[in-house]
Amino acid sequence: MINLKSQITKPLAPRLILLIFFILFLPISQAFAENILVIDSDKQFNLAEHYFSTGEYFRAIGEYERFVYFFPEDERVELAMHKIGMSYFESKQFRKAINAFTAIIDKPNEFQVSSFKFQVSSFITKAYFMISKCHVKLNAPGAGITNLQNLIAIAEDRDVRDEVHYRIGWIYLETAAWDRARSFFGKISPENKDKYRLKKLSAELDRESSIPKKLPGLAGFLSILPGAGYLYCGRYRDAATAFLLNGALMYAAYESFDNGNEALGGLITFVGLGFYTGSIYGSISSVHKYNRTKNMGFIENLKRNTKIGLSGGLKNDGIAVSFQYAF
């Protein structure tokens, strides 16, 4: 006899188990789904901004990069890329900052809407300025100047070109290249001369000729008499040490030769010549150090009295450049 009840029950068993599983775990899955955190562009960008504002720059970099990756069409992409560069700059990783700012310049302009062109242009301009600052921080002012000259080649806006000339002028000024600095300050348009306080800057810069200077050649010549070169530089303790040490070695060598001890006299003479030439070299180096110190003092005074602070005030809708004056 065929068991109809058995044949009907067997196919229903897997379905019944599946139904029970679904009924039991449906509330759990719904609760889990409700707890899933969905990150939109605003939340992601604000998280990156939070880390940047609190100085947690490495975390900020990661969050800005995620923002750029997940929301490539967002109009704040250039701002996020700029903040990545600024995060590297603030954490003193200047080479990585250069790479980050260069990525802004090299990025194809995907935004052709006329209302957005100004923002793209502003970030590219700011990227050039920051790359130049990074090169200066890396003690490569020449590379910083070359970068700014590249900006002059593509910039059509008069105000941008004037700011480039001003920045190049200050790079030359801070390396004590006075004439080159004057040349670039002189390229600023008449309309912006007052903004950059060129009248006062030129007047202060004309005092450059009054900076005290020492002559390296004269220091070397005076060092024929041990210690005199140091004395010329105002290093009286070093002058006394050089005079006494070289004098003692000369006397010791003379006594050795006079007593017939040529080997000892030759050794002392060899050592004495080392100290003697070192004294001459040290005197010349002291002159260069003296001149650098006086130049830096003059430059620092110029900064306090005449330099405009060009700080980029970043906003979500672009870049605002503020001018700070010293009175």
Results as ranks from 00 to 15, higher is better:
93 Q>R: 13
135 H>Q: 10
112 Q>K: 15
171 I>N: 11
184 F>N: 13
88 Y>K: 09
200 K>G: 00
82 H>P: 01
140 A>H: 05
208 E>Y: 14
188 I>Q: 01
175 T>W: 02
121 S>A: 15
168 I>N: 08
150 N>S: 11
186 G>C: 03
129 F>P: 05
164 V>L: 08
85 G>Q: 09
195 K>Y: 08
131 I>Q: 14
192 N>M: 02
164 V>P: 08
184 F>P: 06
134 C>H: 11
207 R>L: 13
126 K>H: 14
140 A>N: 15
130 M>D: 15
193 K>I: 07
192 N>L: 06
165 H>S: 12
86 M>G: 09
161 R>H: 07
172 Y>R: 05
148 L>K: 08
204 E>T: 06
212 P>N: 06
162 D>S: 06
136 V>C: 04
173 L>D: 03
198 L>A: 03
157 D>I: 06
121 S>R: 14
141 P>C: 02
192 N>W: 03
140 A>I: 09
191 E>N: 10
143 A>S: 13
165 H>C: 14
204 E>L: 09
194 D>W: 00
213 K>V: 13
155 A>S: 15
214 K>S: 07
114 S>C: 07
117 K>D: 04
157 D>Y: 09
129 F>G: 01
156 E>M: 02
91 S>R: 10
200 K>S: 04
84 I>T: 05
103 A>K: 11
183 S>P: 01
160 V>W: 03
163 E>F: 10
211 I>D: 14
88 Y>L: 10
212 P>T: 04
197 R>V: 02
174 E>Q: 08
165 H>I: 00
115 S>P: 05
100 A>T: 04
111 F>L: 13
170 W>Q: 00
203 A>Q: 09
213 K>T: 15
203 A>W: 07
192 N>G: 00
